[in-house]
Each structure stands twice: as C-alpha cells, then as structure tokens.
Nucleic acid binder design. Structure first.
Lengths: 152, 152
DNA sequence: GTTGAAACCGGTTGTCT
DNA sequence: AGACAACCGGTTTCAAC
C-alpha cells in the first residue's frame, strides 16, 4: 500500500521524465527489469501516478501571459459557488482555480496571449458572471520557477 | 516553423495523455503512422514540447496541503531579488514562484503535508531570509481545477 | 528479488508515390 | 507530405530459481 524507498525513487524519476525506459530506471536503481516493471504498474494501479502528460512550451504557442486573479463572490446568492466552479472548469484559459482562505474567495491562474487577450477573456468570461462581486488581476512579470514535481 | 491545425491536434492529444501510441493518434486524425511520427519529432525538436512527465497524486503521497503566499522583499537591498530567486529555486516544496504586478512582489505556490508541515517550512526556509520583508499565506481549502493543459 | 526466453507491439527508418 | 514495409528495441508475460 505505502510506497517504499525504491518506489519513491521510481516516482521521482518518472515525474522528472516519463520517457525513461524501464531498462534505464532499472540500471539506475540497481534492479532488474522485472521488479521495476511490476512496481510501476502497481503505482499506476493504486493511483500514485495520476497521468502521463506532455508539458508544452507556452511561449512557443503564443501564450506568453499568465495572470493570477483573486475573485470574491456574491455570497448572498447561495448558487454562486456552484455556478462559479462549473463555469471555471469549462474555461480552458483557467489552468488552476482554488478556494483559498483570507480576504477573497478564489485564486485563479489564467493564461492568455497578451494583455489584450486577457482583457477580452476577462470581459467576456469573468466579469459577466452574476456570481462575481469583485476581481483583482495580478500579471506575472517573471516566472522564477514552475514545476509539476512534488517533493518526495 | 508554426504548427498547423494537425500539429495542434497532436499537441492537444499529447498534453492530455502522453502515452497515446503514434498508432492511436494516427487513427484519430486519419493519418498514417509516418507523418504523425515525423510531426511529433519535429514538435519536440523545435521546442513546442518541453518535456514528458508523470503527474503524481499529491494526496496519495501525503502532500495534502497547498499554500499560496505573497512575499514582499526588502527593496533597499539590491541583492534581494537574486538571493530570493536562487533560494526559492532550490526549495522542492515551492512548485511555482512568480514575480507579479501589484502590492506584493512574489506569488509562491507551496506544497506541504499539513498545516504543521507548512509552518515548519515557513519558519525554516522563508521567514529566515534577510531579503524578505513580509509574507502572507493563503491556504487552499478546495482545488476546483488544476491542469497543465494549455488552450491551443 | 533474479535470470532467461519468447511473443508482441510500437518506434524507427528507408523507399515509394 | 503521406503511405507501405521491414527492422529493431522495449515491454510484457512466463517459467524457474
């Protein structure tokens, strides 16, 4: 059930590069192919690995801007949260959306081509929502670090 | 140089599931294996695909808490930014770090086991930095959406 | 957990249209 | 640029230790 040190090493390798062959992993951790193969399948089966994905290059694809925005909902309306969650889940520009503690309700991470593109998205998809009371946008000026690798 | 509609379809498929075989992709877009193979290699070579990774399940690995924190630096010290950037890049608990517009300087996304674990991380790694003037932490209470898939 | 073998399948390459 | 065919290498499953 719980991954041992060997399992965690395998997970660490795979979350850094999922194209490593079983052979390569096996040689790095001084095991033969069979147990490495079985461990990976087990980690997948048990849900330690959610999925395998390709990470694309934002800038190459014209998505040069990231904006974080704080959203406060109109809490008088009890449908607000459900409505907002469903809307946001459908918007492909929203990469992340979290309910957070503190002064506002949501923190969103949005990608856009540029400031103008973000403005269009904002006007057409966020500001029109009845459930939304207030939004503050923070533009990312420099991405110091961005990783999907968990510390394990 | 610029990906056409077919390339973008391939990218869309790969960023959703990088384990799709060339065969499967080919049949979905009504092409034979060869052009799909060549296009993927080209997209990799030209940097549209940054890397292939396994996305692990945070909760399964005991990393149940995500905290966003706003950090304001002591701008009197001109070494502050460099110092902070380098420190943060080395901290595995920090998944993302961005310089943002607005009232504070940085927005960090941090993972921890729990509130206590975050407190330890905070005390030992963030609050001790001379470059840091102020930090506000926002705990994620619910993750509505989290994806690595860009809208393309 | 290791080794070795065998079948299978996808990736890779060359050639042709 | 796409289709077809042949080869190579990794994956998968098995047996035996």
């Amino acid at each position: 059930m719980n991954p041992d040190a060997t399992d965690r090493t395998i997970l660490r390798l795979l979350q850094s590069n999922s194209q490593l062959t079983i052979k390569e992993i096996a040689s790095r951790i001084n095991l033969s192919i069979t147990p490495v193969h079985d461990r990976i399948r087990k980690l997948e089966r048990e849900g330690f690995i959610d999925r395998y994905v390709a990470l694309l290059n934002r800038r190459k694809l014209g998505k040069s801007l990231i904006v974080f925005c704080n959203v406060t909902l109109d809490k008088q309306r009890k449908e607000s949260f459900e409505e907002f969650n469903e809307t946001v889940a459908r918007l492909p520009e929203v990469l992340e959306c979290s309910v957070v503690s503190g002064n506002f309700d949501y923190l969103l991470k949005v990608v856009a081509d540029d400031v103008e593109g973000y403005n269009t998205f904002y006007q057409q998809n966020l500001s029109v929502l009845k459930s939304v009371l207030h939004i503050s946008s923070f533009f990312v000026m420099s991405e110091v670090k961005s990783t999907t690798e968990l510390p394990i």
